[in-house]
Design a protein around this nucleic acid. Structure first.
Lengths: 343, 343
DNA sequence: TTGTAAGCGTTATCAC
DNA sequence: GTGATAACGCTTACAA
């Protein structure tokens, strides 16, 4: 059945027919056991409900088409411990490589896994160099966002961060650096990875003295929540406050939201993750064949360049009489890119 | 290692320690082979990028916590053939049950699978009765939507349908029935499952004579696309046209979109799917033990009741001079629920 | 309480 | 070109 070269055609078709009639189906476990290999990749995703991660997964699967590997998905559900169990499952399944998308594991745990199985870490910057990684250039991403806002004339910019989520740290840092480079004071309030996390952050911002004219949101979900919360407070985007986000999932492109966002190439990241994993597997094979003392390549860190997509959630700051922004007055000028109108 | 009752404590801890030090990890394939069971469920999801399906998956996983079954996910990517291959993979993996979320398989294929492994079909109405199913009452869902619009005073309502997608048929039918019951003429234009599918549909609607005052969208994504497309055409929701959708994912709740939507209990559907699968596995076990001629229960069809969530994308129709609605005139009245303002 | 051997369904090896 | 046989790593039943 396995395309053996030394079997007569008639016998082969005979067997194949019989197999079909009997509904024979090979037992993968027996095969994997005998073959000592599984042709299976595991992909562990931080949170399948986050469109960003879902799109990366789609990218991996796209690339895997036609490479007869089974790609099985386990969902971490934003929970580190669940992720750990999922990894253990993968190991017991003898997957040949794992792709971690937005993993919450710490460097130490990552190193442990990487020792046991080829590991590609996607979209978790700040990761150590013991594994292959695919990431967006986070400093560049935050800088694109800040530069854009500064060019529009903003000086009072606040970052609603990702809390304890993956890449929250690097975006905080990137924001600080970009602001400082412009001679501006970086200010960050705690957010999270979800729209609901934005509400309290916005409330805190609006109750303070020094209301920002622009907000950099951790991701699209937070940005959407921010726009909503601002609206509830009677503020218009971008007229009263500009909002810029990071990720640029399909959410950002919704015309009614129309978020100016820094794009992360999500599908591409997934595709590269698969390609990288495949490379490692081939490397492993060649090392096995040439029994010479071949040595694996050092870990590869792929960094992709983000790109700014300007939409209608950002515009010049309002002109006000005093230095700080307050409740709407009659001195408003219409924003330059009109708010929520077709372009 | 497997909690055998007949082994001394000291020996057990000794073995366990040794195992840990050596980094021993049981080989699941060997175990599954020997045990003749895998404790693994397969969940096949129509499209992991669709928030609706992702939330159902989350529901399944929620329910599975603490039931030591591994739940592995395969993505169909909206492609019937890929789904078929995924099912084949599950079978070769010897999964003990499969949960199909929004499957594209035809009844015949479904019957074939169900014969081989306990199968639960979620969110694919119109499915036959050979498998257990979890579905929302689709006629009720469409009727809720239509009733709502009729109550608001709409008579000229168009359905942008789901094209060849799962449950597109039943929603078309439900729409037709609900409209007919009100003595209204049902009209349907072809859409799809994505926001982009709405564009051409809206264009077609607006270029015709008899422009609708309300639109029932196939799902939230299509509804979002519809609102966007209407906006591009200079029409305001709900002032010029009301939009109601089905699903009520997190998208519908975005304040800037604020879609009136018929809710499907997504997490609950996932939870019930897991529970149903588990029931079948227990049933199988008891049938095996009592060698008596126990017989499996007939397939269960669980139908959940949908609920209407009124937001700001629906309102009374515009008052116009002629019978049909045309381009905006000066005779407008402000819509009753104000458009896109905080409530 | 511990040790031993058979068997799970497949592949791989090696005679024929 | 074909058929027999020993692995693969685990569980299970039974003997000691």
């Amino acid at each position: 059945m396995n395309h053996a070269p030394n079997v007569s055609d008639e016998k082969r078709t005979a067997v194949l027919n019989a197999a079909r009639e009997l509904g024979y189906r090979p037992n993968l476990h027996a095969r994997n056991l005998a073959q000592q290999r599984t042709r299976t990749l595991g992909i562990l995703v931080n949170d399948i409900q986050n469109p960003f991660f879902a799109e990366v997964v789609a990218g991996v699967e796209e690339a895997s088409a036609g490479h007869d590997y089974d790609v099985i998905i386990l969902n971490g559900g934003r929970d580190r411990e669940r992720e750990r169990r999922a990894l253990e499952t993968f190991l017991q399944f003898q997957v040949e490589a794992v792709i971690l998308i937005g993993s919450r594991q710490d460097p130490h745990e990552l190193a442990r896994i990487a020792q046991l199985v080829p590991t590609v870490v996607v979209a978790a910057s700040g990761a150590p160099t013991v594994t292959d990684t695919i990431a967006t250039d986070e400093p560049a991403a935050t800088q694109l966002a800040v530069d854009h806002l500064v060019e529009l004339g903003h000086t009072n910019i606040v970052h609603i961060d990702g809390g304890d989520n993956v890449s929250a740290m690097s975006r905080r840092l990137g924001f600080d650096q970009a602001m400082t480079a412009h001679g501006l004071q970086p200010r960050t309030v705690r957010g999270g990875a979800h729209g609901t996390d934005a509400e309290s952050a916005v409330r805190a911002l609006l109750s303070g003295d020094h209301q920002p004219t622009a907000i950099l949101a951790f991701n699209d979900l937070v940005a959407a929540g921010t726009v909503d919360a601002l609206g509830s407070a009677g503020l218009t985007v971008p007229h009263d406050v500009s909002v810029v986000s990071i990720d640029n999932t399909f959410l950002a492109a919704l015309a009614h939201l129309s978020l100016t966002a820094v794009n992360q190439p999500r599908r591409r990241m997934g595709q590269l993750a698969f390609a990288t994993a495949l490379d490692r597997l081939h490397e492993r094979d060649t090392i096995r064949n040439h029994r010479d003392d071949l040595v694996p390549d050092p870990p590869k860190q792929l960094t992709l360049t983000p790109r700014l997509v300007v939409r209608r959630s950002s515009g010049p700051p309002r002109v006000t009489t005093s230095g700080t922004n307050q409740a709407p007055t009659a001195t408003d000028q219409p924003p330059q890119p009109p708010a929520h109108q077709p372009n």
